[in-house]
Computed example of a mutant assay.
Amino acid sequence: MAMRSGSLIRSQHPLAAVLADVEPGSCPSKLNFHCHTTCSDGSLSPGGLAEQALAIGLEHLAVTDHHALGSYPLVLEAFEAAEAAGVRAPTLWRGVEISCLLEGCLVHVLALGFAEQHPSLAPYLLGQAVVGPELRAAAVVEAIHAAGGLALLAHPARYRLPFQRLIAAAAELGFDGAEAWYDYGMQPRWQPTPLVCEAIARDLLARGLLMSCGTDTHGLHLHGR
């Protein structure tokens, strides 16, 4: 049931069309679906992040603070002000990074493009990871889909289990995809890590899953981590 539900949401979600065009060079100048502000463990204020996103000329952005959504209205306000002043602003998607257990391994899930204040996500927006049954990956994916969002496994090659095993398990649970293009070397300026990112992308493509990209910014510059 979870997989059928995920496939249906994935086929109809407007963000899916954007993610279908993700390439190794899409980030950090065009797309960024993974970054953080002072609303969780980032160093940039929401306003500061919005200012940099405008300066870069991003087309699409999701701020994915850990278990927090407080940055969204502030970034949206900054973008609306820019648009009113005649400056093109990125399309802003709701996002949050959620911790969960997948194959007994603690991983992070990027929830993207979900509905505002949907009750299914309420337990995951309290500033810290949940405990108990809601920590299971299946429960997290179900909550994200109930809110009309997409569930993507963040940085699949950063965990103690091989990314092949985690992606296979995620696909079985109805995940919509994973973060294909990621800077595992954490360079001063973001760049996808060769070989591993390409292998992840091939795996996702073979499974018909979506690919995302993001800087995972925690510092003061949106072009890097």
Results as ranks from 00 to 15, higher is better:
64 T>D: 13
49 L>N: 09
62 A>V: 10
74 L>Y: 10
43 S>L: 10
92 L>D: 00
20 A>F: 00
10 R>T: 14
20 A>E: 09
82 A>E: 07
42 G>H: 03
91 T>G: 11
26 S>N: 02
93 W>C: 02
37 T>K: 01
80 E>H: 11
77 E>L: 10
49 L>Y: 09
43 S>E: 15
41 D>I: 10
74 L>G: 03
49 L>I: 10
16 A>T: 13
42 G>S: 07
18 V>R: 04
85 A>K: 09
77 E>N: 09
56 I>C: 06
46 P>A: 05
60 H>Y: 13
78 A>M: 07
15 L>C: 05
59 E>N: 09
63 V>H: 08
46 P>L: 03
7 S>C: 09
92 L>W: 02
47 G>S: 14
89 A>F: 00
59 E>D: 14
86 G>M: 00
69 L>T: 15
60 H>N: 12
7 S>Q: 15
40 S>P: 00
65 D>K: 06
90 P>I: 05
47 G>D: 10
34 H>L: 06
85 A>G: 13
28 P>F: 05
54 L>T: 01
64 T>I: 11
94 R>G: 05
17 A>W: 06
70 G>K: 12
37 T>L: 03
41 D>R: 12
70 G>Q: 11
22 V>T: 11
47 G>L: 12
53 A>G: 06
51 E>Q: 15
31 L>I: 01
33 F>E: 08
75 V>A: 08
82 A>R: 02
18 V>F: 04
89 A>Y: 00
8 L>C: 11
77 E>S: 14
59 E>H: 13
57 G>A: 05
66 H>C: 02
83 E>A: 14
61 L>I: 09
59 E>I: 10
77 E>G: 09
51 E>L: 10
73 P>W: 08
82 A>P: 06
75 V>S: 08
28 P>W: 04
46 P>G: 09
51 E>R: 13
19 L>D: 01
91 T>Q: 15
73 P>T: 07
59 E>M: 14
90 P>K: 05
34 H>I: 03
46 P>M: 03
29 S>T: 13
75 V>P: 07
24 P>K: 08
32 N>C: 13
86 G>E: 02
24 P>F: 08
71 S>T: 11
11 S>W: 06
40 S>Q: 07
76 L>R: 11
21 D>V: 13
71 S>N: 12
26 S>E: 00
54 L>A: 05
27 C>W: 02
46 P>N: 08
94 R>A: 09
55 A>P: 00
18 V>C: 04
74 L>E: 14
32 N>K: 09
55 A>E: 12
68 A>L: 04
77 E>K: 14
60 H>P: 03
40 S>M: 07
68 A>Q: 13
95 G>T: 08
47 G>A: 13
65 D>L: 04
49 L>Q: 12
66 H>K: 04
87 V>I: 13
11 S>C: 11
62 A>L: 07
34 H>S: 01
51 E>Y: 08
56 I>S: 06
81 A>Q: 12
42 G>D: 02
90 P>V: 05
32 N>V: 03
91 T>C: 13
23 E>F: 08
91 T>E: 14
